[in-house]
Design a protein around this nucleic acid. Structure first.
Length: 443
RNA sequence: GGUCCCUUCGUCUAUCGGUUAGGACGCCAGAUUUUCAAUCUGGAAAGACGGGUUCGAUUCCCGUAGGGACUGCCA
């Protein structure tokens, strides 16, 4: 039984990088008919908030990434205590008493001497009497005693990975204030929830080595790991540096369609071409982790926008009926109006734009050179209401009267009627144009 | 400073030592629809740099440069 999890900490809004992680986990679970767990890593009570937890759920729901089970670490403290006791009993957890300032100083000096800033295990060798004395003045924190050996695993994206645990400090698992840290909590959760596949960003590669040792010391096997490269912005900058940029919330507000975004992220950084898919199931069918590269990939929202436009044009009228109705389109007009505009939308909200343009009328744009031409054409324009044949009969007459043809015949008329050089097929749009056209001279 | 990863068209990437270095998205042009879009056809567009191995290197090795991750009482 495949079990995957997406484990954000509710300390901020999700961004596209987070989404890629969530999506991969979701798709793996979906394809295998397994379980997808949403796990809120909220052991840090100060930074975590319910507001962000809600925002995360909202984002996932918007995208259709339904989770089968929700867990939160703040509710599992007892379990972590149990793990702590077990590790102490087996001698893998030891208490330390350095202050953060002392540790920083230590690292600084090691660095200055050209040594790697690895913890020197002072706490491990402290005599009991000294520990008791220290304990009286401050709360100790707990470190996991690493085996100083290489940890190897076959990563489903990176291939054979080998990390030397000797190059890493014994990780702190429990803070002085008793807070359990990610490194331990995550392992306990993966054990208890029987997680089989861990897909996460490659910033966790080193963690994996230490966590594999923790799995072992708790007498459990580690799950399969896959570490994907990190996403950057269009200029290669790290995501999340610019606050709010690339957040899912922003993309949603900008009108990006879920399936467009999902289709893009499922293939970005892979050797397979991006293909617009209609459903998560289709994406799940196509998913191939081995096609992901190890190099960081750039995410450009413009790609998601282009896909959004293509996605919208593929939709049947039933899918957009609520949008048409709320834009004020009468149900009887919905089908033909949708057919008229569907291929000319950037975002869903453009439905309202075109309908308002039809009902409220447009500000025309007339190039100075076309002023006489447009005036002549307008004198030939039949009064509203127009129908599906109006555009053709009108432009034919205008063409005869003025001798114009092709682009120079049509474009000024399109701009006079809609104020834009691009837009829906005019013969399909004209029947809906009931508002007055406000003619004015272009600058 | 240390460890690890990465570097091919604008972007994502293919290439198991010999290829006119391929595809997709984007872009440009033409065709078509006497409009917009769509579609079709075509086009421009790449091996970071320096060594080495080899008959032959984008491919293997070393180095340099650049980018990223980790090096937290964050996750």
């Amino acid at each position: 039984m495949t079990v995957c999890r997406f484990a954000p900490s509710p300390t901020g809004h999700l961004h596209v990088g987070n989404l890629r992680t969530a999506l991969l986990n979701f798709l793996i679970a979906r394809r295998a008919g397994g379980t997808f767990i949403l796990r809120l890593d909220d052991t840090d009570r100060e930074r975590s908030s319910e507001t962000y937890a809600d925002a995360i759920r909202t984002d996932l729901e918007w995208l259709g990434l339904a989770w089968d089970r929700e867990e939160r670490q703040s509710a599992r403290l007892e379990r972590y205590h149990g793990a702590k006791d077990e590790l102490i009993r087996s001698g893998r957890l030891y208490e330390c008493f350095e202050t953060p300032a002392e540790l920083e100083l230590k690292r600084k000096m090691q660095r200055r001497r050209g040594q790697p800033p690895v913890y020197d295990r002072t706490g491990l060798h402290l005599p009991q009497s000294e520990k008791a004395a220290l304990r009286a003045e401050r709360a100790g924190h707990w470190r996991f005693l690493l085996d100083r050996e290489r940890v190897d695993w076959t990563d489903r994206i990176l291939g054979e990975v080998s990390v030397d645990a000797a190059s890493v400090s014994d990780p702190i698992l429990i803070r002085g204030d008793g807070q359990f840290l990610y490194t331990l909590a995550s392992v306990c959760d993966d054990i208890d929830f029987h997680v089989t596949d861990v897909v996460r960003g490659s910033d966790h590669v080193t963690n994996t080595a230490t966590q594999v040792q923790i799995f072992r010391s708790l007498s459990c096997g580690a799950p399969d790991f896959a570490h994907h490269s990190l996403l950057t912005g269009p200029d290669g900058e790290a995501l999340g540096k610019r606050i709010g940029a690339m957040s899912l919330r922003d993309l949603r507000d900008a009108g990006i369609e879920p399936m467009a975004l999902l289709s893009h992220l499922a293939r970005l950084g892979t050797s397979a071409p991006v293909q617009l898919r209609a459903s998560l199931d289709e994406l799940a069918q196509d998913l191939d982790l081995s096609r992901f590269g190890a190099a960081p990939a750039k995410f450009d929202a413009r790609d998601a926008r282009a896909l959004t436009s293509r996605y919208l044009s593929s939709l049947p009228v039933a899918e957009v009926m609520p949008d048409l109705v709320s834009a004020g389109v009468p149900v009887g007009d919905a089908q033909p109006f949708w057919e008229a505009i569907r291929e000319n939308l950037d975002v869903r909200a453009d439905i309202g734009f075109w309908w308002r343009l039809c009902t409220d009328g447009a500000d025309s744009r007339i190039e100075p050179a076309d002023r006489d031409y447009v005036a002549a054409a307008c004198s030939l324009l039949p009064p509203q209401p127009w129908d599906g044949g109006t555009w053709q009969s009108w432009t034919a007459r205008v063409g005869q009267a003025t001798g114009r043809k092709g682009r120079s015949l049509y474009l000024p008329l399109r701009m006079a009627l809609t104020g834009r050089s691009r837009g829906p097929d005019m013969s399909r749009l004209m029947p809906f144009m009931k508002g007055a056209v406000r003619y004015r001279q272009a600058e």
